[in-house]
Each structure stands twice: as structure tokens, then as C-alpha cells.
Computed example of a mutant assay.
Amino acid sequence: MAWLALGEINLTQDWEFTIPVVGEVFRIIHKPINNTDNKYLKAVVAQGFVDEKLNIFNPQRLSYRSESEIFTFYFPSGIAQQKLCLKRLDYTDIDWIIEAEVYQAANPLEELSNYLKARFGETTIMDYLVSTSSGFRSVFPTTVETMAEFSDVTEIVGRNPNRLHLIIRAGLQEISLFTNIAADGSGLNLIEKVPAGQLFILPNNGGIYKGDIFAQSAVAASDISITEYA
């Protein structure tokens, strides 16, 4: 399993925030403390953002423990930058430091398959992909790892006349996908901007696009995982 560290936070009675993040599964690791009097430590963890004031949703209780804790949060896209926020609810004088991490699936098919099972039951990824293609035939997936550069638009997927499905997962940076590249090296015909850590499934609206696909990272060079069914 791939966990991305979001940093350490010293919990206080004020709201503390992680860096902006994209994900739904989070892990909290408690650093060792000196609590010989067995004082009860409690806090709250939630998702939140600030506009005119602080907005939090789905707050959950956090207590000190030696084990790591897993929390799941759904953050609607488009309303703000996703962040975890934490606040201490006790008033003891014990330093309480946690480390926050977000789960990043190493395999985009695993992530999509987990979503389909949660949404539709025991539907398998192959059942989904084959049933949504034109007719039923054997499909052969290939998965490659590549990079999207920050300064240059680069080809990440070549033309494939046999393409049935294409899944692209952005790494640690947002990426922009294009169908062509201009003479000056800029991208042409934007397909989608894929947020960091998210999946993009090439639409199949009466016929899937089978040409080249180019990518450029929004901030710095970013890893990309590509799975193509043909």
C-alpha cells in the first residue's frame, strides 16, 4: 500500500490544517507521549476549508492510542481545496503530536475496482469494462508508468485503433491532457485536467477516441499510470 505523508501536527485547541490533498482514505499515526497519570486525550478530525469563515464537515472523534487509525472522508470536488483539519478538545499539558498520511493507490485498476465494488456490489473491473464496450470480446490490458513534464507537453499514449478503454491516473501533481501539440510546443485540444491522485477514464460516447494523447504537469514533473484495454 502507498501512503503519502502530509506532515506532523502538534495538536492544540486551535484548528490545525494539513497541506492541500486529494484522497478519501487517511491514516493518523500517534507519536509516543509521556502520560504516566493516564490523562484522557481527545481531539476531532474533519475535512474543512476557509472562505469567509471556517467550514468543517464529517467531524470524527480522535483519541490517543498506540495503534494507527484509518479515517475515510468524501470531499466534493470543485468547492475548495481539500484539507484535513484537527483540533484538540482536552486541556492537559501533554504534547500530542500526530502524523497524517493519505492513501494513494499504486494501481489505478485497483482503485477503480474498489469503487465499482463499493458502488455496485461484487461487479468486477473486467465485467464493467467488457460490458460497456461494443459487444463482448477478449480485452488485453497493458499498464505503463511514465512522466508528465512541467515545461514540455509530451506524448504519453500513442494512437491505437483497437482501443476499447483507457484509464489515466495522475501522480502527485495535476496534469492536463491534450489530443495534439502545437508548433510552439504547447498543448492543443484540451481533453481534461486531472487532479493529483485522481483517475481519468476516457469517455466512450458512441465511440472512443483512439488517437494520440499528450500531457503536461501543472507544477512539476509528475508520474502517471496508464492502463489501456485493446
Score class of each variant (00 low, 15 high):
residue 94 I to F: 01
residue 12 T to A: 11
residue 98 I to P: 06
residue 188 L to Q: 11
residue 47 Q to Y: 05
residue 211 G to F: 06
residue 205 N to W: 13
residue 7 G to A: 02
residue 14 D to P: 01
residue 22 V to C: 11
residue 25 V to L: 09
residue 78 G to Q: 03
residue 41 L to Q: 04
residue 67 E to F: 11
residue 88 R to S: 05
residue 3 W to D: 05
residue 27 R to A: 03
residue 45 V to H: 00
residue 224 I to E: 06
residue 96 W to V: 03
residue 73 F to C: 07
residue 155 E to Q: 12
residue 14 D to I: 10
residue 61 R to H: 12
residue 85 C to P: 02
residue 90 D to H: 06
residue 183 A to L: 14
residue 52 E to A: 05
residue 46 A to S: 13
residue 203 P to T: 09
residue 53 K to W: 10
residue 201 I to D: 00
residue 114 N to T: 15
residue 151 S to W: 15
residue 63 S to T: 13
residue 70 I to Q: 06
residue 173 Q to H: 11
residue 77 S to R: 15
residue 212 D to M: 08
residue 42 K to Y: 07
residue 51 D to N: 14
residue 190 L to Q: 10
residue 130 V to L: 05
residue 202 L to C: 11
residue 139 V to R: 08
residue 86 L to E: 04
residue 174 E to F: 01
residue 116 L to N: 05
residue 210 K to W: 05
residue 134 S to H: 14
residue 14 D to S: 13
residue 168 I to H: 01
residue 38 N to Q: 15
residue 11 L to M: 06
residue 121 G to P: 06
residue 165 H to W: 15
residue 220 A to I: 09
residue 105 A to S: 13
residue 100 A to T: 10
residue 217 S to E: 02
residue 40 Y to C: 08
residue 9 I to G: 00
residue 27 R to F: 03
residue 142 T to G: 09
residue 127 D to T: 09
residue 218 A to V: 10
residue 143 T to C: 05
residue 92 T to P: 00
residue 67 E to V: 15
residue 103 Y to L: 14
residue 44 V to F: 05
residue 34 N to S: 15
residue 95 D to V: 11
residue 163 R to H: 05
residue 103 Y to V: 12
residue 132 T to V: 08
residue 166 L to R: 01
residue 21 V to D: 01
residue 205 N to Q: 14
residue 187 G to Y: 04
residue 122 E to A: 09
residue 118 A to E: 09
residue 32 P to M: 03
residue 175 I to R: 01
residue 57 F to N: 03
residue 83 K to M: 08
residue 126 M to P: 00
residue 47 Q to F: 06
residue 228 E to K: 02
residue 23 G to T: 04
residue 81 Q to M: 13
residue 166 L to I: 07
residue 166 L to A: 05
residue 225 S to T: 13
residue 2 A to T: 14
residue 119 R to K: 14
residue 156 I to P: 01
residue 5 A to G: 14
residue 41 L to D: 02
residue 93 D to I: 10
residue 167 I to P: 00
residue 142 T to E: 13
residue 110 E to M: 10
residue 21 V to C: 03
residue 20 P to L: 03
residue 32 P to K: 00
residue 86 L to G: 01
residue 170 A to E: 00
residue 152 D to G: 05
